[in-house]
């Protein structure tokens, strides 16, 4: 039966909005979410620029703008609405830049930002559909293609301090006495230009947690995973493996916990799945740091665990009243 057309009732002077329930909403939008996330990156950005100089700002600016332009281009090709004003592309680009050494060659930054958007997001259907955190795809592509250009120690050889994870991998635990935890926490270590600013990232991530833009399940379980597995190794042989607090403070562990692992699309949705996701990813970080051939295990650990997300989401409680 074709439903009869309901004629407009007599008065059309007041045209009401008809929308589905619920009629009260929390008022959050994608735009406000991304603005909060960008705001949360600012402390680390400032700390990065303070430490590495204007080249850090240049890298972030370049990656961000290239990511936005690539997104515009991709949306044009797909004949979709150009919605880069929701800041998601900018955010992905900046996350990618945060993983780079501050003096990374400009062409690596550009290629990486393009890969972040195209391979990371567009091929899967755009923002929100990516199975793996987009910025990590860009990072991994560059890391495997141009190892020298992406190498932290090589790029930043003019600094007196060293990259802690590189020291650990190449020269063993004994060399770690050159770092103290306060310095590591305050970001006095070589690493990705924003990714190693532990204190500043904690401030930004704390802001997101307090405003409930991200939930605590993933960050906390991620750090728990790192801590637990690191403790395990350390307990086996303190002379061969680094202490757990070192693993938490060195490299991009905090960045991964607060910003990369909590990427909406590539992380699970449920409470328990998110917790398991964090634990597995955290455990993988230390395993890769101990056995892997790359100093920092965070990006690869997260990419691998991202692929487990759909599987983890099958761990779900019985529905209300379910059998």
């Amino acid at each position: 039966m074709t439903p009869p057309i309901i004629k407009a009732m007599s008065d059309i002077a007041t045209r009401l909005t008809v929308s589905p329930a619920p009629h009260w909403r929390c008022g959050r939008t994608l735009n406000s979410m991304m603005r909060a996330h960008l705001l949360a990156l600012i402390p680390a950005l400032v700390a990065g620029i303070y430490m590495y100089g204007l080249s850090a700002a240049a890298t972030v600016g370049l990656a961000g703008s290239v990511a936005v332009l690539t997104e515009v281009f991709c949306l044009k090709l797909q004949k979709r609405e150009i919605d880069v004003d929701n800041f998601t592309a900018l955010y992905a680009g900046i996350l990618f830049a945060f993983l780079l050494p501050a003096t990374a060659p400009w062409w690596v930054t550009v290629v990486g930002a393009i890969i972040t958007i195209t391979l990371g997001r567009t091929v899967f259907g755009g923002f929100g559909c990516n199975p793996v955190c987009a910025s990590l795809i860009g990072w991994a592509f560059c890391r495997l293609s141009w190892p020298a250009a992406m190498d932290i120690d090589l790029n930043l050889a003019n600094f007196v301090i060293n990259e802690p994870l590189f020291q650990l991998q190449k020269f063993g635990v004994d060399t770690l006495s050159q770092f103290n935890y306060t310095d590591l926490f305050l970001g006095k270590q070589l690493g990705g230009l924003g990714a190693s600013q532990v204190a500043a990232l904690t401030v930004g991530g704390g802001f997101l947690l307090i405003r409930k833009w991200i939930r605590w399940y993933i960050p906390v379980s991620f750090l728990l995973g790192v801590g637990a597995v690191a403790t395990l190794f350390w307990a086996i042989d303190p002379g061969a493996y680094a202490p757990p607090l070192f693993h938490i403070l060195a490299g991009s562990t905090m960045f991964g916990a607060l910003f990369l692992a909590t990427d909406t699309a590539s992380s699970p949705v449920g409470k328990l799945p998110q917790f398991l996701f964090g634990l597995i990813a955290g455990a993988m970080v230390v395993i890769i740091r101990v056995y892997g051939s790359y100093p920092d295990g965070v990006p690869f650990a997260l990419m691998l665990t991202n692929l487990l997300s759909p599987l983890l989401d099958r761990v779900r409680p019985k529905p209300f009243g379910g059998r």
Partner: peptide
């Protein structure tokens, strides 16, 4: 406010 229905005319 959560489960109600929006009406399309004031004459409803």
């Amino acid at each position: 406010s959560f489960r109600g229905e929006a009406v399309y005319s004031l004459d409803e």
